[in-house]
Amino acid sequence: MTLDEILASMFPAGHDVKNDEGVVYGSGSLRSGGLALVVGVADRLPLGVDDAIILSAHVLRSIARDSGPILVVVDSDSQRMSKRDELLGLNEFLAHLGKCLIYADSHGRPTIGLLYGHTAAGAFLSTALATRVLVGLPGATPVVMDLPSMSKVTKLSLEVLEEKAKSTPVFAPGLENLAQTGAVHVIWDAGVPLVDQLETLLASLPDIDDGRGLLGKQRGGRPKAYEIAERVRGLGLQSR
């Protein structure tokens, strides 16, 4: 689905979301009443300092002014890889965007990521993965590291990696593989109006506590993370 189709299907009552050269912001009218803030990245834009600062500004302005959920729509490249972005401290800009989203979520503005295209690495962390609930649309193609690059680093052939990827979802790109680790909560059905699926989700939002560890354990994609984190937390509490 294109961004326009997604927005039309999600907000049949109307929206004023703009796509300014890949930087997305605006709001949509919810069927259940009120508005949702929409921010995000489109057209496979690599997320750099100039884009991240616009998005964080929108989120901060909205925290002070509005109510309602925040939708983060994502079809990005990875972070913008350039001398200029690193020179200016890209890590701070991406972290700042992530922080704004996480802060909003815990202050009455539940955040929902909607991954409808590509995303990778730092762009993924500061947008879709900084939300409370991440929804995948069929056809989305998230990657942490593509197999050809991984082949270069691990010195394993592409064929060997493709074979391993079938049995081990933990390293291979793709929406299903990420869903197994607990990163993607739910994959929507493109054949059902998105407004229905959005309203269902809003009516039964998961708890604010980060449940991705448990999800990954239940789905078998991360066998150890939940238990290890809980053990360390328990030992930490005893040190009080």
Partner: peptide, 25 residues
């Protein structure tokens, strides 16, 4: 991220970012 377990590593970083903010809050 450790490439051999890239999805788990990326998500771990996302969880840590959230946990840092929760701890600071």
């Amino acid at each position: 991220v450790r490439l051999q377990e890239a999805n788990a590593g990326e998500l771990a970083i996302a969880e840590i970012m959230r946990a840092v903010i929760e701890a600071r809050s």
